[in-house]
Amino acid sequence: MKVRDFMIKDVLTVNQNAPLSEVLQLFVAKRINGAPVVDADGKLTGMVSDGDILRYINPTRQTVYDMFSYVFVSPPEELAEALAYKVETPAKKIMKKNVQSVSPEQDLEEALGILAKHHFKKLPVVNEKKEVVGVISRGDLLKQIAGRLNELNAKTVSR
């Protein structure tokens, strides 16, 4: 079995210069939890997930600075304050940059191995030009595998 047989071909991507507000709107509107990040030519530059966003917008706690025998204490930040200045941050500043990817022609077992080893939820599928042509997600793979198991069971029962 090949990656191309299981990948989602109608993949949603995020432009690396898209502001956080746009990424959030996409995730909520399309009910997704991550997406490949691409440059203007559609080439993979990273991955951004809901977890990356939450970690980024997480308000800072109270911080203590000790400078030249003076102690400064910053007040804790509120979520509204954090969002106010973080909402225009481009995706390329939030994304994971060193991402694994697979090609459509790779064996599915290789993709499963990468997903399992690195605990990824999604894996971008790229062509030889590093353009995103699909994505493989754990949930979609499980659905496909369960469907194929059902088909095999039905064939076994009918014999």
Score class of each variant (00 low, 15 high):
residue 39 D to T: 05
residue 39 D to W: 09
residue 39 D to S: 10
residue 40 A to E: 13
residue 40 A to S: 15
residue 42 G to N: 04
residue 42 G to I: 04
residue 44 L to Q: 02
residue 44 L to C: 08
residue 44 L to M: 04
residue 45 T to K: 07
residue 45 T to C: 13
residue 45 T to Q: 09
residue 46 G to A: 03
residue 47 M to F: 12
residue 48 V to R: 02
residue 49 S to F: 06
residue 49 S to W: 05
residue 49 S to G: 14
residue 49 S to D: 13
residue 49 S to E: 12
residue 50 D to L: 14
residue 50 D to S: 14
residue 51 G to Q: 12
residue 52 D to P: 03
residue 52 D to R: 02
residue 53 I to H: 03
residue 53 I to C: 12
residue 54 L to A: 12
residue 54 L to P: 13
residue 55 R to K: 02
residue 56 Y to H: 10
residue 57 I to M: 09
residue 57 I to G: 01
residue 59 P to Y: 06
residue 59 P to H: 06
residue 59 P to L: 13
residue 60 T to L: 12
residue 61 R to E: 10
residue 61 R to G: 03
residue 62 Q to V: 13
residue 63 T to F: 15
residue 63 T to D: 10
residue 64 V to D: 07
residue 64 V to N: 01
residue 65 Y to I: 09
residue 68 F to K: 05
residue 69 S to P: 01
residue 69 S to E: 07
residue 70 Y to R: 15
residue 70 Y to I: 15
residue 71 V to H: 07
residue 71 V to E: 14
residue 71 V to G: 08
residue 73 V to F: 11
residue 73 V to S: 03
residue 75 P to S: 12
residue 77 E to H: 10
residue 77 E to Y: 06
residue 78 E to D: 12
residue 78 E to P: 01
residue 79 L to F: 09
residue 80 A to G: 01
residue 80 A to H: 10
residue 81 E to T: 12
residue 81 E to Q: 13
residue 81 E to W: 01
residue 82 A to C: 15
residue 82 A to R: 06
residue 83 L to H: 03
residue 84 A to Q: 13
residue 84 A to C: 08
residue 85 Y to I: 05
residue 86 K to T: 06
residue 88 E to G: 11
residue 88 E to K: 01
residue 88 E to V: 04
residue 89 T to F: 06
residue 89 T to Q: 08
residue 90 P to D: 14
residue 91 A to W: 06
residue 91 A to P: 02
residue 93 K to A: 14
residue 94 I to C: 07
residue 95 M to N: 04
residue 96 K to E: 04
residue 96 K to L: 04
residue 98 N to M: 15
residue 98 N to C: 12
residue 98 N to P: 07
residue 99 V to W: 05
residue 100 Q to A: 14
residue 100 Q to M: 15
residue 101 S to K: 09
residue 102 V to W: 00
residue 102 V to I: 08
residue 103 S to L: 10
residue 103 S to H: 07
residue 104 P to I: 13
residue 105 E to H: 07
residue 106 Q to W: 04
residue 109 E to I: 01
residue 109 E to A: 15
residue 112 L to A: 00
residue 113 G to A: 13
residue 114 I to A: 09
residue 114 I to Q: 07
residue 115 L to Y: 12
residue 115 L to C: 03
residue 116 A to T: 04
residue 116 A to W: 12
residue 116 A to K: 11
residue 116 A to L: 09
residue 117 K to W: 14
